[in-house]
Design a protein around this nucleic acid. Structure first.
Lengths: 246, 246
DNA sequence: CAAGTCTTATATGTCAGACATATCAAGGCA
DNA sequence: TGCCTTGATATGTCTGACATATAAGACTTG
């Protein structure tokens, strides 16, 4: 637990302190669930005031690297980063990336389906009955009459999430689920007619059946169709929007 | 620029304030490069003190959502999240995920090569001469006699980075490069013999040639071999380690 | 008149000390 | 023994102040 305590007075102290502690965590010098020195201690070590140390700790808390607890035995503890939290971060980041960089619909869709396709070989091999059940249950929900658009989109995401989980590789699931969920805002625009819902449900069913039969070629074909149909809907939306504008 | 200013007194103010501003940024209420109210203003609006507001802003700064600038026309500005910054974050996160969750080598390697393979179809279609040049140049560097292990690993990462960039889809590049770079710490262990270097260089060359010929089957085959060889080296390392331990 | 310099206003960065509050542990009391 | 009180310690927050960076306007000077 020896931290470099010499700071460059030209740059933000809180940033440098955060970086020092972050490096220590990444290097494994601070064990998971280990307790950091108290804010007062850290302030004394770095030769800064407590508010400055607090700003540094808040930076780390924002990245889920530490958690804080009040009370006598409280303090700042190194978090075990879990896949769920990390995924939230990734979705937030990916969503912002897409919206702030004017990524066009085709590029995003291409990336999404390219990525999602990677789970199919593994999913065909490893899918268990519980994965098939999840897929079927989401398909059933999507077919409910009177389901709201929000409900349909949520179930759509859950379906694809189940699909990537069927590959039974948590690291892969993390990457792919992040990619899929980040697309949700873009996908929300295109599933608002009964016709498109029926078509999407049909393709979902085809995917589920392909997984059940462990038929990789069929799964790839269904994914291709879903890809093409998504692009088609997207260009339809654009046409309609352009017509309204003029 | 209307922010919800009512806070739940039971939870951290700085966290709630950060969440409020974060939501506004994600929703697009705060335009990119737009300036937030000054810390004093925000403190007055939320009914808290300036240090509390500052902790909130540092949380956002840690996620690269805002940048701050001192001086008369300074303040906190909404950042345009770019792919580079976002990738740094993703690599940090993925590295921590792998190291903190005892992900076994096989799982990580499987995820990595599954993901990287997705760029091959697009890369075979779209690769330009500049992509081929980047690939060849990294291969040349890897063959240099006396190259340090660090240098070899760095060039290895650069090679795979060039490979995913050949797909010419920034969103895909972002996802895949993050996955590849996060593996670097794990890969560092296995490239320390001349034998493995020569083999890896041969497979890199095979990949480059396949891309040059736009031969998807050959590219996939080379990737398969690289995958298998990586696993082989990994299990070799483990055997050696186990023998040393006993 | 023009160019450079000075002043000032405004913002963030930092500090010091204080109080509020949550929490656990130890000691006291029935 | 079991409950309660008390104290210690930690984070959470507030107040007020000073330091510093920066740009714009006022001023001075060639």
């Amino acid at each position: 637990m020896n931290l470099k305590t010499d700071l460059d007075s030209a740059r933000d102290y809180s940033q440098q302190i955060a970086q020092t502690i972050r490096d220590a965590i990444i290097a494994g010098d601070l064990p998971v669930d280990g307790r950091l020195p108290s804010e007062g201690d850290l302030a004394a070590r770095f030769g800064v005031s407590r508010p400055t140390v607090r700003e540094a700790l808040k930076r780390l808390a924002a990245q889920n690297l530490i958690r804080t607890q009040r009370g006598a035995t409280g303090g700042a503890f190194v978090n075990r980063l879990n896949f769920e939290q990390a995924q939230e971060h990734m979705v937030t980041m990916a969503t912002l990336l897409l919206s702030m960089n004017r990524v066009d619909f085709e590029t995003a869709v291409e990336a999404r389906f390219s990525l999602e396709r990677t789970c199919l070989p593994l999913a065909c091999t490893r899918r268990g009955p519980e994965h098939l059940a999840r897929l079927r249950s989401e398909i059933a929900r999507q077919a409910i009459d009177g389901l709201t658009d929000e409900g349909f989109c949520a179930s759509d995401v859950a379906f694809h999430r189940a699909l990537v989980d069927a590959a039974d590789n948590p690291v892969l699931s993390w990457h792919l689920a992040g990619a899929v969920e980040a697309m949700q805002p873009l996908m929300n625009m295109i599933t608002y007619t009964a016709r498109s819902r029926a078509q999407i449900i049909a393709l979902h069913s085809a995917l589920a059946c392909a997984l059940e039969d462990r038929d990789l070629a069929a799964a790839n074909a269904a994914m291709d169709e879903l890809n093409a149909y998504t692009l088609e809907l997207g260009s339809e939306i654009r046409t309609r929007r352009d017509r309204n504008r003029s």
